[in-house]
Computed example of a mutant assay.
Amino acid sequence: MKIGIDKIGFYAPHIYLDMNQLAKSRGVEPEKFTIGIGQEKMAIAPITQDPVTLAANAALEILDEKDRKDIDFVIFGTESGIDSSKSAAVYVHDLLGLNPNSRAIEIKQACYGATAGIQMAKGHIALNPESKVLVLGSDIARYGLNTPGEATQGAGAVALVISANPRIMELEEKSVYFTNDIMDFWRPVYSDKAFVDGKLSNEQYMAFFTEVWKQYKEKTGLGLKDFEAICFHLPYTKIGLKALRTVLEEGTEDVKDRLVENYTASTDYNRIVGNIYTGSLYLSLLSLLEQKEDLAEGSRIGMFSYGSGAVGEFFTGILQPDYKDNLRVENHNTLFSSRTEVTVSEYEDIFQETLPTDGSTVKLNIDEDPASICLAGMSDNKRNYVNKMK
């Protein structure tokens, strides 16, 4: 039985910051951001968007009534959780009007959470072939103003429907994974901003890719020539290329050219969104599928997932017949073209606007947010969400 990605959706907030403007404001050459790390725009979440609303909006564009009935498991991968007890998946389940006879959980392991959710979903579908699983990767990357990590911030969510007989990608059975306890990136419960050892994190990302790629070749007997493309978790787009270059010598010139060309296509969306943690790998996959028009059905796509702390995994998928008919290219083109640029000063004000932490009541102006699902405020220590479509 084939199991894999039947649908994939994406959502990013309606405002962004141009990285050239941020560079000028911070007194650095723009090329440091646009070429050095490979980022052009940073998606910014207004106070009316949080990980729950981002995920719900991403799922809203892909689900139909049959999906709402068939989905009996919602798995929410995030490292931007809003509650230490209640899962973000439960909020999304309600906002989308899903089948009440469902499981709903939240998974945390830095940027690896959505991948863990997909692997769990595969097991569920194997036991329950008529079911569907909604896997969500949603995050808001925050490092702080004028910090070394500021240029790699972002916000957004990817939603995936995992099912039997998938229409976009069959996920192959063999994968490899690796865990090691390191402190390259972390966010204590008392902080709303992440801490990162940038040099160590880059080193470990590369080391983990080397390890799982070696394991994968030994386990499967496959090599570079067997891949049409390899997608990477992208905290910034340049790091995936650095990892890819470490293995390119294993391929012929044709293979090298193909993988580099397809890698570039896989970064188009990430370049104009920024880091979305758990969703970054799947945003890269979506970019590849929607921006590379000549990807053939039956192509094998490799995927490297990395979550600091750290867990890494390499797994693969096969593109299905007519997979392009199940993508939403126009929706995403409209999403990106309709965004509004903000100034650095406006971005700084938005960044510093936060919800109360003392139980105070606050009402937010959701009329200024074009999203269908928004955070409308807080009362009695509860977040109040609104689905404008209901």
Rank of each mutant, 00 (worst) to 15 (best):
G4W: 00
K7L: 12
G9Q: 12
H14M: 03
I15Q: 08
K24T: 03
S25M: 01
F33N: 02
F33W: 09
I37K: 02
A45V: 06
D50K: 00
L63S: 00
K66Q: 15
K69H: 09
Y91A: 15
L96Y: 06
K108P: 06
I118G: 13
A121T: 13
H124K: 05
H124F: 06
L127I: 04
E130Y: 07
V135I: 13
D139E: 07
D139Y: 03
D139K: 02
L145H: 05
G154A: 07
V158F: 11
I168E: 05
M169K: 11
N180R: 14
D181V: 12
D181Q: 14
D184E: 14
W186K: 07
V189R: 13
S191D: 13
V196T: 12
N202G: 12
Y205M: 11
M206E: 06
A207H: 15
A207Q: 07
T210P: 00
E218L: 14
E218K: 13
L234E: 01
P235K: 03
T237I: 09
L244W: 00
T246K: 15
E253T: 01
E253V: 05
T264K: 13
A265N: 13
T267N: 12
Y269H: 03
Y282T: 00
L283E: 00
L285W: 06
S287N: 11
E290A: 07
L295C: 15
S299V: 15
R300E: 15
G312A: 15
K324G: 00
N331T: 04
N333A: 10
S338Y: 00
T343D: 02
V344C: 08
L355N: 02
D358H: 06
K363A: 04
G377T: 14
K382Q: 15
Y385W: 08
